[in-house]
Amino acid sequence: MKREKIRVLAMLAAFLLPLLALGVVLSRIHDRMAFVGRPPIPAGTRILILGDSHATDSLDPQRFGQACNFGSDGESYIHNYYKLRYAVRRLPSLRMIILPADLHSFSAFRSNRMLVTSEWARYVDYLEIGRLRGKWLHYARELLALRLFGFRGEYQRFLSCWLPGRCEPEVARIDRGFTPRPGFFIKKGRMERGRTRARRQLEGVDLFSPDMVLYFKSILDLAQRRGLTVILIRFPVTSEYLRVAERLMPIEDYYARIRAIAAAYPRVHLLERHGVLQAPAGRYFRDAQHLNLDGAAIFSDLIRADLEKLGLIEPEVQNQQ
């Protein structure tokens, strides 16, 4: 009987090992496919744009000289911190980082959604997050699942990348991390859509989550140690979104708290540019809180002008472009 048990156990192990090895290989192939549209940060980059979809959609790095937009959708200060840590190790040329400081930037809505994905696993130290949150086992298990079965449910990505000519267009669209997104926020039901988005991000959650504050300070600390200038931007939102947000949170107090944190660091600037591009209504937005392609072009120029006024961008840097 004992011999029978050992035989079955050995067979199961012999069956599972190649399967797990295949899983690791397929997961790595999947990771590479997930990055088809995201080339590495160019060497010599001086300005690094971090943040979520607001930063990704709104700031065209070509308008800032040797800059790269390194943000991506759904990111929080936690991701931003690890991405910055990743970047400073590789970019001795880095001088400035641009970060969003939006109404939802400190919301627990984001820290609660700390997913383990193949894209973020490149930068984020999930085990460190697990230790900090007292959930090391949870993150270790998620990471293991990602390494072994990261390709699960991803048949569409495999099919599209294995069929000729399906992957290339995305590479062409994304330039130095900037993702131009067309569209206008002029359809019916704008108020409703604005309300839905604002509520999802701001209602019933801690709007100044300690988790976010911790990572925000970590970013500022790291930037200070490396001698980097930090630009915080309050990105434009539509009046529909703002009206709901005003009912859900004390906006002035919120920014006062951000300014109080930033005041402890010498090279931090907060640019409150949320009120621009409001007319004609929805013309420069693709939804309630994201600029479209046209809006991004104008907004990038505005921010560049602000940086020039602050003396942070040399005119010759622009001319090189």
């Binding site: 069956f15 190649p18 399967l19 899983g23 079965f149 390709f151 699960r152 449910g153 048949y155 495999f158």
Partner: peptide, 17 residues
């Protein structure tokens, strides 16, 4: 075994997780 591998991979690729 080949049939099992194919089946498991089909579940992994086409499943909703």
């Amino acid at each position: 075994w080949a049939a099992y591998y194919l089946f498991i991979l089909a579940v992994l690729f086409f499943g909703v997780f």
